[in-house]
Design a binder for these strands. Sequence first.
DNA 1: CTGAAAGCGCTAACAG
DNA 2: CTGTTAGCGCTTTCAG
Lengths: 330, 330
Amino acid sequence: MVTIADVAQKAGVSISTVSYVMSGKRAISQETRDRVEKAIDSLGFSPHAGARSLASRSTNVIGLQAPLRTGVDVHVVMQVVTGVVTQARKHGYDILLIASDDSKALLRAAKGSMVDALLVMDVESDDPRIETLSGLDHPSVLIGLPEGRRAVPCVDFDFEAAGWLAVDRLVALGHRRLALIGSPPEVMARHTAYADRLARGFLAACEANGVHGTVHACPSSAESIATVDAVMMEDPGITGFFVHNEGALPHVATTIAQRGRQRGDEPAILALCPDDVARSVPGLADSIAVPAEAIGAAATDMICEILASGAKPAVRLLPPALTGAAPAAR
Amino acid sequence: MVTIADVAQKAGVSISTVSYVMSGKRAISQETRDRVEKAIDSLGFSPHAGARSLASRSTNVIGLQAPLRTGVDVHVVMQVVTGVVTQARKHGYDILLIASDDSKALLRAAKGSMVDALLVMDVESDDPRIETLSGLDHPSVLIGLPEGRRAVPCVDFDFEAAGWLAVDRLVALGHRRLALIGSPPEVMARHTAYADRLARGFLAACEANGVHGTVHACPSSAESIATVDAVMMEDPGITGFFVHNEGALPHVATTIAQRGRQRGDEPAILALCPDDVARSVPGLADSIAVPAEAIGAAATDMICEILASGAKPAVRLLPPALTGAAPAAR
DNA sequence: CTGAAAGCGCTAACAG
DNA sequence: CTGTTAGCGCTTTCAG
């Protein structure tokens, strides 16, 4: 292994000079800088991360607790993670993946000085990890927006506003009875924050618009078909559908279109999902995009800012927007 | 921050004793062990990862290079990653996520002593990273099976055998003209190792069985419908379909069934995908499971074994098996 | 503008 | 069975 001492020797300078060349924390004459840099890459030197973190008391690693179980919207999770990792590298940070979804795993990473900060996904409305996080001296950011006291900064998509936007859109298209086909029952039951907020926005907007609206949990498998059938049977007047369930989307879209054809009306389907997912479903007129990668990037920016400048905790919600989905083939 | 010295003082022992209590690397009397352990958790001590890695020259971290872009089979990637992370924790390792898919990112992690070993996913048949890896003094395992010299140990699903199994099954069901509806064109073009091997096994098995077989790239979006239509138009005699494309699966299954109904025969669809994905598609009779999580776990076991005992590089392929998919709802 | 040297917190000889 | 101590490779005062 090549160490900073090797570099110093080769460049004919002291160890500290090499260190300062790398960190830029003090002025170095162009001449020595050149010599040191040449030595560094002729030797292929890269500083030992552990030694660095021991001496500097910072790791340049961010811990990311991501829900890797299937059942959640896989594409969304992937894209958020991608956003996080990509943006983190831009800020000079690496990502330690934390898979178990409990407080203990967070504590382990923080107290073992494995990370400088924590990013936590898949937050529930009343999440026990929030207390853990606020007791830590590592900064953290939630990807999600829980209820209650804002002890920890949050970044998320504005699901509540998305509910409003969807209703406004469906109403503008002339629909007066709407249904939100939402997350799987497990997700609803856990009161995952986004599901709660979406439903709240949707229902409030229905009321404000004076239209009828109902919210339905929906399995993300093929069983979703039965759910939609049941909804359409029970209230045949429903013609406006707002679907927030990635796994069910293709089945649901097909079913709704088919049933609509059978009874001779033209139901509208508005989906809430990443753009590329929407594009892959045939027959979707338009959708509201979940900017998953942007969410990950924004959360990362926030935590890096806190790390860099001790910025104040805050809440940041990315606004929803309608997207005309490209016409699916055929 | 609480250090090992604090623990030693509180327990009335030397710091090396504390260290040895934690590592178990030398005999400790029950009495002192108890005292030390009590001190450790009354103080809430956890050793500083960086200090540890500096002194011990090992990080207890494994770098995982995963393809986070969408387009690959998202569920499969997720499950492999889950398998890796979960199994790694069992062996006492954490996972550093490496998102950029080049050699440079691998070098950075290895040469910066951020990881003890590397796990690399999404391997191409002739992958430049292999040379990088074999030049490193960190051990590594590929999740995937490239062609050629086996310079680096590999773990993968036996896609070639899966090709054979699928053909045998479809032939046993009485089909004589088969089509493999495979990965998206980009994946095929890149010669992603698994796509190549699956096609090879499929075609060889067709020949051995004396049946007709063709291989088709297929977009994973709704455009897949057009692909299937084209295949069925061109050769109306094809009744056996083997589908290896998670994104396209629901559309393809629907289309094939529908076209079959139109022309009055009963095409068979055999899917190659994770079990839960198969179960979520209505009308799939049976499938071959891609044991994604097991692959991740197996790769992790292998790298940990190499790390622990300097075991020899090897190739390990998980065998395919038919699964009767649970009857989808409705 | 540059060097010398004191740690950072831990592991692993070495010495009893 | 336990303690002492010399580093591990780097950052950062302190001193020129």
